[in-house]
Design a protein around this nucleic acid. Structure first.
Lengths: 129, 129
DNA sequence: CCAATAATGATAATGATTATCGTTATTGAT
DNA sequence: ATCAATAACGATAATCATTATCATTATTGG
């Protein structure tokens, strides 16, 4: 039986009101201001738990795992320049359909990462020249 | 100026004649049989180098990074049951196009991971019942 | 209020990867 | 062929992200 925990609620809430897909470490340092004795282990523990419950999704990257409170299947755009991660508003089922047509049986889900230089970075690079 | 290295050639060659997308550790233990004093650091070092040169691609997963000598843009299927990684023969440019239509500028590339239970595992699960 | 136990915080341990550094191998010039 | 310059190596320490352990604290239902 799962019990209430202030820490878990805070983690869930903190993630819900952000759109920058923070890492466990980022969430930890932010939450530490309101919950000073918070442990990094509690953040990892709860993010894992919430992921199992389908309340958050983990975004696997080459570095630290990032988290997203938006559980609707969607893709992400990774800026090669500033490292920001932006939600992509494209239909995930269309991508899944492409995978399903590839001749392999059993394709159930997909996760797509798109790469490039975001418009902000593109702008500042242009200004430097 | 880059110099010849037997180790790098062996790593590249070992990866080229396989289709199971091994990790650095897997390549290391296999290559150790022919190059007994090979160091794991050399494997990591060269895989990173080869990736920079565009001769191999790294496949980012939630566990250890896997490598692929097939540098033609393509997707992978991850079996949830046995953990195998299989090449998906679908057109990557079609997926890229979906991402490009999502309203964000600067989308240059993409990497899609598909998930499910492979036909081998699906078969053995069926046989157990 | 109390017993049962889920969840915590602190921290040790793990797994993957990278950095360091003294030694070895490759290279181009003599 | 020899030599100096330096790329690459092997061994291993260090780092980073994450998980496991465990004694303590908080929540819950009776």
């Amino acid at each position: 039986m799962t019990k209430f925990s202030r820490q878990r609620e805070a983690i869930k809430n903190q993630l819900s009101c952000r759109y920058d897909h923070p890492t466990a470490e980022t969430l930890y340092s932010e939450l530490k201001e309101t919950i000073p004795n918070l442990s990094i282990a509690t953040v990892y523990r709860n993010l894992k738990q919430l992921e199992e419950w389908g309340e958050v999704v983990a975004i696997t990257t080459d570095g630290a795992t990032r988290y997203d409170a938006n559980t609707h299947p969607h893709s992400h755009f990774f800026c090669r320049s500033c490292g920001s991660v932006i939600d992509l508003d494209c239909d995930n089922s269309d991508i899944l359909e492409i995978g399903r047509r590839a001749g392999i049986h059993g394709v159930e889900g997909c996760s797509s990462n798109f790469y490039g230089v975001c418009s902000d970075c593109c702008q500042s690079i242009r200004n430097e020249i």
